[in-house]
Amino acid sequence: MDIEIFNGVSVQQYIWLTVILFSIGVLGVLSRRNAIIIFMSVELMLNSVNLLLVVFSKMHADSMGQVFVFFSMSVAAAEVAVGLAILVMMYRNTKSINIDVLSKIKE
């Protein structure tokens, strides 16, 4: 089924896009040690899901999905603020943003 969503781009193509974006995010989280990069990767995963929500909302002609995206974006904004604050504290304490130093907490 080939449903056009926007400017000749089909649903399937959007799904592939979000899958790719999400996978990049997962790989970024898994492979990088820099806390800021990991943070960005998390945001990427979040936004890929947001995009998927918008696509399905358009497909079903139901605006609830898009409303939901606004909520999730505002929560994400709050989360970013908290996350960055943690990062700042982490940098102040360890002079590093490499997450491996966090294994110190184990001791």
Binding site: V29, L30, R33, I99, D100, L102, S103, K104, I105, K106, E107
Partner: peptide, 9 residues
Amino acid sequence: QTGQTSFYI
């Protein structure tokens, strides 16, 4: 429980 964040993820 290695303490390695990446392992947890």
